[in-house]
Amino acid sequence: MSTAASLDLSRLGAPTLVDIDYEATLRRRLLAFKARWDAARVKDPTLPAFDVIDADGNPLTQFDTNAVLEQEFAHGETMIEQTINDHANALRLATAVGADLRHLAVTYKATDPLIISPATDSTAEVLESDDELRFRAQLSDEARPLYGITPGGYVWRIRKLYGDRVKDVRPLRRPGGQMDLYILGRAGDGTPAETLIGDIQGAFDGEAGSQSTDIVTVRPARIIETPAAVKLWVPNGPDPAAAVAYATTAIAALGAERHKIGETLHAQAIGAVAKSGAVRKVDVLAPLGDVSGGADGAPYISSITVSWGIDG
């Protein structure tokens, strides 16, 4: 896979334009106020001394009127600084969300958000997730003809044209100029329809659709099905129904996250997400080991079973 596709922007963290430190801001403001107050006392010795801070600007009391006002001003200043950082993050592909991300993707990456389900009289329009749009925008440069079509370029084109039906794409370059494109569908266990495979293959047939040195073959991803079964051990007394419901939802969310080509569904992760407050321990009954998708497959949780027992 290309460098852009393998770079996880979410791991970069948000850079900071303005360092925010409320305590330092308050000390600075109090020292500045004291300097101005002392200058005023030189002109008017009848003014009382401002002696409610130490030499470093730390308040000695929380009840002086001027100190309280400076606390309020310091809070307002730090809120403004946070707003500056928030606005800066809205202009970065790695940290922008919602409308800000869509603006960046369209304006600078020529990548429109995909409509997964159009609006109807009774349902709202469903767009692809921010993470999916960010990933496609990140790959857009690799699809430009000037550079030829990289593996990431194939991914970008497929998700742009068929993103409402394609959940994941894995390009694998083989010897002899072979480029295999493995497709994971959005519906059900991810097995793509034959018509979808045919549509994608047709889009890359001929020199206009692919790099002239590539022999492109579109293939369905292997689906590695596994049941997920856990047993929750809870103390005597609390109703386990809430813990069972929580575990079921958490395992389903983990399965959806790991349902991608090349991912691994770790048995330990299933036990970790299934544990909630009242649960003392979790036994993972299935799968008995990690389920790896390998280079061309995707793990899929086919069923979820959550049982419980009394611990002690």
Rank of each mutant, 00 (worst) to 15 (best):
M1D: 08
T3G: 10
T3C: 09
S6T: 15
A14I: 09
E23F: 10
R29L: 15
L30W: 07
L31E: 01
A32Y: 10
A35Q: 08
P48Y: 08
I53F: 05
N58M: 14
N58E: 14
T61H: 03
T61N: 07
Q62F: 14
F63E: 15
L69T: 05
Q71R: 04
Q71H: 05
H75Q: 14
G76H: 08
N85E: 07
N89P: 07
A90C: 08
L91S: 08
H103M: 12
L104K: 00
A110S: 15
L114A: 12
D131G: 04
L133G: 02
F135Y: 11
A137M: 05
G148L: 13
I149G: 13
P151K: 01
G152M: 03
Y162L: 03
G163L: 03
P175N: 03
L184Q: 00
G188I: 00
T191S: 09
A193V: 01
E194G: 12
D199R: 05
G202R: 05
F204H: 00
D205C: 13
A208M: 10
S210T: 06
S212E: 14
V216Y: 00
T217E: 04
T217G: 03
A221R: 03
A221P: 08
P227L: 07
A228W: 09
V234Q: 02
P235T: 01
N236F: 10
G237V: 02
D239A: 09
Y246P: 01
T248D: 05
T249K: 10
L254G: 05
L254V: 07
A256R: 13
H259Q: 07
K260T: 14
G262A: 06
E263A: 12
E263W: 02
T264I: 08
G271C: 02
A272Q: 05
A274T: 00
S276W: 02
A286M: 05
D296H: 07
P299W: 08
I304Q: 02
V306T: 01
G309V: 10
